[in-house]
Amino acid sequence: MSSKLITVFGATGAQGSSVLQSLQANTNKSFALRGITRNQHSDSAQKLSASGIEMVQADGWDKDSLIAAFKGSWGVFVNTNSDDAVFENPEEKRTEVDLGKIIVDAAVEAGVEVLVYSGFNSAKEITGGKVPVAAFDDKNAIWKYARATRAFQSVVAASPGWYFENFLVQDLAPIFGGFPFVPSEDGNFVFRVPRWGGKEDIPFISIADDFGDIVHGIFLGPEKWNGKLVQGVSDIRSFDEAVKAFEKVTGKKARFEEVPNWQDLDIYGIRALETIKRMFGFTQESGGRYYGDETEAETAAQLKKNAAEACGKGGDETHLATLEAFFEREFAAAS
């Protein structure tokens, strides 16, 4: 039986590379893999190519190049970047929705059967218009557009939560109180953000450890997930519990402090952080429901297990990552 070709748009990004890595480890060799990049000569593209993944060059704004890149693909994974440099230009009139529609139309014309999109439910719809979040709302519009074409056998949204990897970005630490890199005057590592809302059950996700496996699991049986949003979740914790997990495995004193009003979170004019700021307003208004529904990890856990087993793994390797394991790996050694 010939392998089904899966093409990844955004192959060199965190999500795309995680998806390719998981699919490539499938021991049944069920899938052939292709990655799309705007620059085949970049280090990340060269690395993927060296690993045996077919890399092709295409631009999301160039429909013809995308049709050629998608040609022969059974499935496609797509992540559009809300923070792409093109959107930083104040004179730019094109939107993420425009980009998404071009990609979807190209996939339709190329005859793709399964589309897995890194999408969201609409913050604007969930909050009755009170707290729109452009990135969430635009990605939701793209997902709806893909479903409305009725051209795919399966259209699925794989929706990532709060990245574990955000804690590795040192430039973000001062904005969020210093945690986990810059201690406060009393020696504690302080994580200072607005509250989440509801039960304070934040859906944390390890992109490197779990997201690719979750998407892999979807591709193993996409018809089951057609039209559904799959919650990309590794570990559900409050911010206070996340900080305590860090404290437990590193031995470093840490605490969570609440910013009383989400509008007061200072993002220093950084456009990319506007999404995070408004996300707090959205989750407070929605009662903590980041996905619009009750946050759960059971679906992600089963998809992770299915994918890990397809890669020949067993035991703990089939389980979702935990914050303790992440903090121990990334920070305990430096304690």
Results as ranks from 00 to 15, higher is better:
residue 225 W to N: 10
residue 227 G to C: 09
residue 229 L to H: 09
residue 229 L to T: 11
residue 231 Q to M: 12
residue 231 Q to G: 03
residue 231 Q to W: 02
residue 232 G to E: 01
residue 234 S to Y: 10
residue 234 S to P: 09
residue 235 D to C: 02
residue 235 D to S: 06
residue 235 D to W: 01
residue 237 R to C: 12
residue 238 S to K: 06
residue 238 S to W: 03
residue 238 S to Q: 01
residue 239 F to G: 05
residue 239 F to C: 09
residue 240 D to N: 14
residue 240 D to T: 14
residue 242 A to F: 07
residue 244 K to H: 14
residue 245 A to N: 12
residue 246 F to V: 01
residue 247 E to P: 03
residue 247 E to W: 01
residue 247 E to L: 01
residue 248 K to G: 04
residue 248 K to S: 11
residue 251 G to K: 07
residue 252 K to H: 04
residue 252 K to D: 01
residue 252 K to L: 11
residue 253 K to V: 00
residue 255 R to S: 15
residue 256 F to K: 03
residue 257 E to W: 00
residue 260 P to F: 00
residue 261 N to H: 11
residue 261 N to L: 10
residue 262 W to D: 02
residue 263 Q to A: 12
residue 264 D to H: 05
residue 264 D to M: 03
residue 264 D to A: 11
residue 264 D to W: 02
residue 265 L to R: 01
residue 267 I to G: 00
residue 271 R to D: 07
residue 271 R to H: 10
residue 272 A to V: 08
residue 272 A to H: 07
residue 272 A to R: 11
residue 274 E to R: 11
residue 274 E to S: 10
residue 275 T to Y: 14
residue 275 T to H: 13
residue 276 I to C: 09
residue 276 I to A: 15
residue 276 I to P: 02
residue 278 R to F: 15
residue 278 R to W: 14
residue 280 F to A: 07
residue 281 G to D: 02
residue 281 G to N: 00
residue 281 G to L: 00
residue 282 F to V: 06
residue 282 F to D: 04
residue 282 F to P: 05
residue 283 T to M: 03
residue 283 T to R: 02
residue 284 Q to W: 02
residue 284 Q to K: 09
residue 285 E to H: 05
residue 286 S to G: 11
residue 287 G to H: 07
residue 287 G to K: 07
residue 288 G to F: 02
residue 289 R to H: 14
residue 289 R to T: 10
residue 291 Y to E: 04
residue 291 Y to C: 06
residue 292 G to C: 01
residue 292 G to H: 09
residue 292 G to F: 08
residue 294 E to S: 15
residue 294 E to I: 15
residue 296 E to R: 13
residue 297 A to I: 08
residue 297 A to V: 10
residue 298 E to F: 13
residue 299 T to A: 15
residue 299 T to M: 12
residue 300 A to T: 11
residue 301 A to R: 14
residue 302 Q to A: 15
residue 303 L to R: 10
residue 303 L to E: 06
residue 303 L to C: 07
residue 303 L to M: 10
residue 304 K to L: 13
residue 305 K to P: 04
residue 305 K to W: 09
residue 306 N to D: 15
residue 306 N to A: 15
residue 308 A to L: 13
residue 311 C to D: 13
residue 311 C to H: 08
residue 311 C to Y: 00
residue 312 G to H: 03
residue 312 G to P: 00
residue 312 G to S: 00
residue 313 K to F: 04
residue 313 K to Y: 06
residue 316 D to T: 12
residue 317 E to F: 08
